[in-house]
């Protein structure tokens, strides 16, 4: 196994019994419960496509930016709380590999969180349908549609995820990362439909799943581009930083 591979496994091991892992379940569950209540409380029939779109929108518009913020902060705090940076950086591994492994694990958990959300959306719809009397969820459940929309959201969300991870790893306190995440999510609410939304990383996932094809592609491309560039800059910046 490569040294980077071993570092990634070590980073995954550190998340064992951590709040970060619980968050990967709890955040998508919030969307599931809200969707379940919406479908259950609706007085008329609803199409599967609408259930899926509502669920994926709730995730991309609000929960993904907020959860990625919280997850990155929790991953960063694993090291800061343990005062483990020094031990991590005196291994013979290159500093860049150490940070790349940590960031990769945070990104993998963000992906896991989105995957759980995609699984919970149809479950919430099906459960509500089962309990509804008179009105049912109509039409065909579109797995492909769900996966495509989920993929777009995840790809466009790379930028915000990397930026949140960068802040969470860079500062000892989780407050800067949290403030930026909350402000970014609030900005999404304000500018979601405007032309400025495509320059705000936190607004990109919601724009990536919109009906406007050109805007969707732009959101994905911008999200991936900012994400990749930010990842490289993050590794360079953290590798030069003196940790307490």
């Amino acid at each position: 196994m490569t040294s980077l591979g071993r570092l990634i496994i070590a980073e995954f091991l550190k998340t064992k019994r951590s709040m970060a892992l619980w968050l990967c379940l709890a955040a998508p569950m919030t969307v599931g419960v809200t969707l379940f209540m919406l479908v259950l409380g609706r007085g008329s029939s609803i199409a599967w496509l609408s259930v899926q779109s509502t669920g994926i929108f709730m995730w991309s518009f609000f929960m993904l930016p907020m959860s990625a913020t919280a997850l990155a902060a929790l991953i960063g705090q694993i090291e800061y709380t343990a005062r483990g940076w020094s031990y991590l950086l005196v291994t013979p591994r290159r500093r860049a590999a150490v940070f790349a492994a940590k960031a990769s694990v945070a990104l993998a958990l963000t992906l896991l969180m989105s995957t759980v959300a995609l699984l919970i959306i149809p479950l919430a719809g099906a459960l509500a349908d089962l309990l509804r009397v008179g009105h049912h969820v109509t039409g065909q459940f579109g797995m492909t549609h769900l996966l495509v929309q989920g993929g777009k959201s995840v790809a466009a969300g790379l930028a915000l995820s990397v930026l949140q991870i960068w802040l969470a790893l860079r500062f000892r306190s989780f407050i800067p990362a949290l403030i930026v995440g909350v402000v970014g999510t609030f900005a999404t609410v304000v500018v979601y439909a405007s032309k400025y939304a495509l320059v705000i990383p936190w607004a990109l996932p919601a724009n990536a799943i919109g009906a406007d094809e050109a805007r969707s592609i732009s959101a994905i491309v911008i999200g991936l581009a900012i994400g990749i560039i930010a990842f490289i800059l993050m590794i360079l910046d953290l590798s030069r930083k003196e940790f307490p």
Partner: peptide, 17 residues
């Protein structure tokens, strides 16, 4: 040390690194 890991798991993290 990582408080939520056992002593062995803590050493395992360092061993892997």
């Amino acid at each position: 040390l990582y408080d939520r890991l056992t002593g062995r798991e803590n050493l395992e993290v360092a061993r892997l690194a």
